[in-house]
Computed example of a mutant assay.
Amino acid sequence: MSRERLARMIEDASRVVVFTGAGISTESGIPDFRSPGGVWSKMKPIYFQDFVASEEKRLEAWTRTFSGAAGWTGREPNAGHYAVARLVAAGKVSSVITQNVDNLHQNSGVPDDKVIELHGNASYATCLECGLRHELDVLKQSFLGRGEIPSCRACGGLVKTATISFGQSMPEGPMARAEDEILACDLCLVLGSSLVVYPAAGFPLMAKRNGAALAIVNREPTEQDVVADLVLHDEIGEVMSAVAPASV
């Protein structure tokens, strides 16, 4: 009955915002961050300040990136991603706010301008000085071939994967866009987020307090379950395939 109720909530809503966390991507084989066996149980995060200050830390960070140690990229979207993409295409979902850095929403067919990335994107790099985008395949050739730590081809500045690291400021533009979308929605659908990482985890609460309905689909309980209108502790791909069938 819970899946049927979620389907009705989506059908009755005029503007849905989907908020996703690591749980939607674990079904694609991408590890999450904090659970046993997750990324941070295997390696310590490199803080932004250390990356900027230390060539040794930059070397370590890029070695992780090009070895695929974190496992954040190179996977395919799963049924949950494709179901969300169908809801976007149908005009039901106005935007996808994501804590993920894996680019899988875009790969599943969600237009770039519909995806709001709160923690950046691991599939490319940017210059910390001028903001120029750099493709990882190009940087990898120089790093592996000549041992060059990436620097900006335009200004010579430090280049870093386009993720938001510990100690790095949250991106102002995406945060502002996310707030606008949250305050305009009448249903916030959370998929696969533990809702413990703030400020991002504050957006579903903001939607609820602004009068929107709140639905949470996550395998484990979250602190926000008590205020949600509907909670499903279930597999995201199965749930979303049921509520957003291929005919949507």
Rank of each mutant, 00 (worst) to 15 (best):
I216N: 13
A212I: 00
P36G: 01
D225W: 03
L189K: 14
R153F: 15
D180P: 03
M240H: 05
G237W: 01
Q224S: 07
Y198R: 05
E223N: 05
S247K: 12
D32K: 07
V217M: 07
T73S: 11
S95F: 04
V197E: 05
A184G: 04
R146L: 04
V190L: 05
S41H: 11
G29K: 07
R5P: 02
E220I: 00
L136H: 13
I236V: 12
A228R: 10
F19E: 08
E76C: 06
L191H: 09
K57R: 12
Q99P: 04
S108L: 04
L144R: 10
S41W: 15
E56C: 02
C127I: 13
N218H: 08
V227E: 08
G38F: 12
R146C: 01
E56D: 13
G202P: 11
H119V: 00
P77K: 05
V96I: 15
C152K: 03
K114E: 09
S35L: 05
T98C: 08
E148H: 10
A162C: 05
E56Y: 01
L158S: 02
I97D: 13
C155K: 07
K114R: 14
N78W: 12
E4C: 02
E55R: 09
I30K: 07
W40S: 01
E11M: 15
G167P: 15
Y82Q: 01
A61G: 02
L118S: 06
R146D: 10
L136P: 09
R209A: 10
V217P: 10
C188A: 15
K160Y: 06
G211W: 04
S94K: 09
D50N: 13
V101W: 11
T98Q: 08
I24W: 15
N121Q: 08
G80E: 12
N107V: 02
A69Q: 13
L118A: 06
E129D: 14
L139V: 09
C185L: 00
A13D: 08
E181V: 00
C130N: 11
Y198N: 11
G145N: 14
I97E: 12
N100Q: 09
E172K: 05
Q99H: 06
M206N: 01
C127G: 06
I10G: 09
L232K: 04
